[in-house]
Amino acid sequence: MRFTERALNRLPRPLAELLLKYRETVKFVIVGGLSYVVSLTINYTLRLTVFDSKPVTALTIANVIGTVVSYFLNREWSFRTRGGRRRHHEMLLYLVVNGIGVAVNSAPLWISRYVFGLHVPNVSRTVEEISDFTFGMVVGVALAMVFRLWAYRVWVFPHDDARPAPNRHEVPAQAVLPAPAPAPVATDSPGA
């Protein structure tokens, strides 16, 4: 039994059906979560070392690396049955969409820093860090995620079932105890 089937067997049947119905979106969110961790780690590694005074540059580099990770995971897992374009055309569209996604992700941080002035010496270092995290890693990521999901479905991987799925499966049978058998009904028999 596959890991996915084992995990779904542990969930209530309505929730398992809902997750399977929206499995493409669920996989996209999982890949996004992993890419988020990659971007977050690289962003703060760069910000705490070589780009300490250039947070937008650090975030942009981190997002580019996270995008490369996300392409391969989305292509081979989240949208594995979608396609309809030649590989090089698909990759070019993916890069364009993600270039726009990186800009969408970086825009809230840029606005907070350079329009609202939420940086030292205008605010304390603590306020600057909270603002950078909120606008760069929360608001920016959320806006870019919604844009990317829409753009992948419309432009990058436009046709569903363009590639055969290796192993599509239905909602797994839930491990539910069978209903108890009804109790025998006592009858008065004439010879008893």
Rank of each mutant, 00 (worst) to 15 (best):
F135Y: 05
V120M: 01
G84R: 01
V50D: 10
W77Q: 08
R82M: 08
L46A: 02
G66H: 07
E129M: 10
Y114C: 07
G117Y: 08
L95Q: 09
P121E: 12
R113S: 13
S124F: 05
S53W: 03
E76N: 13
R113N: 13
T134V: 14
V138Q: 06
Y44D: 03
Y71R: 05
L59N: 11
M91C: 01
R80H: 14
R87Y: 04
H89R: 13
A62Q: 04
V123P: 04
I130G: 10
T45Y: 06
F72K: 04
N74Y: 01
G99D: 06
N105F: 01
L95V: 15
V64G: 03
V120Y: 02
L46S: 01
I111L: 15
S106C: 15
V68T: 09
F116L: 15
G83Q: 05
S124G: 12
D52G: 11
S131F: 04
L109P: 10
S53Q: 12
S53P: 00
R87K: 06
N98W: 04
T81P: 03
V68R: 01
F133E: 10
G140F: 04
V102D: 05
F135H: 01
A107P: 09
T57Q: 14
E76M: 05
F133D: 08
F135I: 07
I130K: 04
V127I: 13
R85G: 04
V96W: 06
F72R: 09
A58V: 07
V123N: 02
N122V: 07
S106N: 14
S131C: 08
V69Q: 09
S78M: 05
G140M: 07
R80K: 13
P108M: 11
E90D: 09
R113K: 11
S78E: 12
V104G: 08
V127R: 04
F133I: 07
I100P: 02
T45E: 01
T60A: 15
V102Q: 02
T45A: 14
F116S: 11
V139S: 05
F116A: 15
P108A: 10
G140R: 05
L118K: 00
S78P: 11
T134M: 09
F133G: 00
R113E: 13
I100K: 01
T49I: 13
A103P: 02
S124N: 02
G117N: 03
T126R: 06
A58T: 09
R125M: 12
N105A: 13
V96R: 01
V115C: 13
V115F: 13
S131P: 10
E90T: 07
L95P: 03
T49F: 13
F135V: 06
E90V: 08
N98V: 08
T57V: 15
L118H: 01
S53T: 10
K54N: 15
D52F: 04
V104P: 04
L48P: 00
Y71C: 10
L59E: 00
D52K: 03
H89T: 15
A107R: 01
F51Q: 09
H88G: 06
E128R: 00
T49K: 07
I100Y: 00
L59Q: 08
V115S: 12
V56Q: 00
V50M: 14
I65L: 11
L73H: 00
T126I: 14
D132P: 01
L95F: 12
N63L: 11
S112I: 03
A62F: 01
V69I: 06
R75T: 12
L59A: 11
N105M: 10
D52M: 06
L48D: 14
